[in-house]
Amino acid sequence: MKVLFAAPAHYWQPWAPHLRASCPEMELAREGDPAGFDALIYAPGYPEGGQALDFRPFTRARLVQSLWAGVERIVANSTLTQPLCRMVDPGLAEGMADYCTGWALRAHLGMDHYAQDGVWRHDQTPPLARDRNVVVLGMGELGRAVATALAGLGFRVTGWSQSGRPHPGIEVLAGPALPKVLARAEILVSLLPDTTGTRDLLNAARLALLPRGATIINAGRGTLIDEAALISALDQGQVGHAVLDVFRTEPLPPEHPFWAHPGITVTPHVAAETRPATASPVVAENLRRAMRGAPLLHVVDRARGY
């Protein structure tokens, strides 16, 4: 099978050896006649120059395999008619669980309360994890991994998704229950994708539903939070702290008010990264399925956007 590696140039060196090792029967190329490729391995930013890739010449392609978990920058391409599959990487899920549990524990234990300034602050004892309510918005692959990790630490975890699809050991509530879920979220972890239904989901009205002083950890998409509403909620003490890893504009501009706000911790989109070593076997499996006409893994529903 002939596969086009349609990703920015800096992806090639870390990805190519792992992809070839996972799928030795593949002929992996960075260029060639579009009509000669059986599949594409794709990441936004290809081709260079800012223009969107025209998928129409790839008349033989049976699969467009995204290297990203988020596909909002791909599904909007009207030239894409081939099956599109998002990346579900075990390493990415592990990384997201590490990030979210780390920041959740920091909030839960009040680690930032103990300034190293000679003052003996013996006035606050955190509850046990089993007495702390944590809510995970978005119960896809990443959300389920995070919810499971947090529950394993003893937190009282509630998941929320539009469908309410159950997950073992976790109470998962569906769309209309969002106000109820937010009302219990002492720590709120947001892992929702960017869709028309999730943009500005956390607006002023919904932020007001949180327990006063709640912590928000957003590692989903920057469009989920109304930025002005978040700053207002922080200034009023309704939200105690926000850890933000994703933003509407990335890199986050130096002049953006998030950088200077004492209630916000900015991390530079590092919560979870697709790792070539763990993701390449997933790509290989989908390539083989495409070639034999078998059902593909993690096919994107373009109407839903994920």
Rank of each mutant, 00 (worst) to 15 (best):
L4K: 06
L4S: 08
F5H: 07
A6I: 02
H18R: 11
R20S: 12
A21I: 09
S22Q: 12
P24W: 01
P24E: 05
E25K: 02
E27S: 13
R30P: 00
D33I: 00
L40I: 13
P44R: 10
Y46Q: 06
E48R: 12
A52I: 00
D54P: 04
R60M: 05
R60G: 04
Q65V: 07
S66M: 05
V75Q: 00
N77G: 08
D98G: 01
C100D: 14
W103H: 15
L105R: 02
G110V: 02
G110E: 13
Y114C: 09
Y114S: 12
G118C: 06
W120V: 13
H122N: 13
H122T: 07
D123H: 14
L128E: 14
A129H: 03
D131R: 10
D131M: 10
V135L: 01
G140E: 03
E141C: 02
T148M: 00
L153K: 04
S163Y: 01
R165M: 11
R165F: 05
G169L: 11
I170L: 00
V172T: 12
L173Q: 15
A174W: 00
A183C: 04
A185E: 01
E186S: 03
I187A: 02
L191C: 10
D194I: 03
D194G: 05
T196L: 00
L201H: 11
L207F: 11
A208R: 14
A208L: 13
A208P: 13
N218Q: 05
R221V: 02
G222F: 03
T223V: 15
T223L: 01
L224R: 02
I225C: 06
D226W: 08
A233T: 08
G240L: 09
G240Q: 08
H241S: 02
V243N: 07
L244P: 05
V246I: 05
F247C: 09
T249D: 15
E250C: 10
P251E: 11
L252N: 11
P257Y: 11
P257C: 06
A260E: 12
A260S: 14
T267F: 07
H269E: 01
S280K: 02
V282R: 06
V283A: 04
A284G: 13
G293W: 10
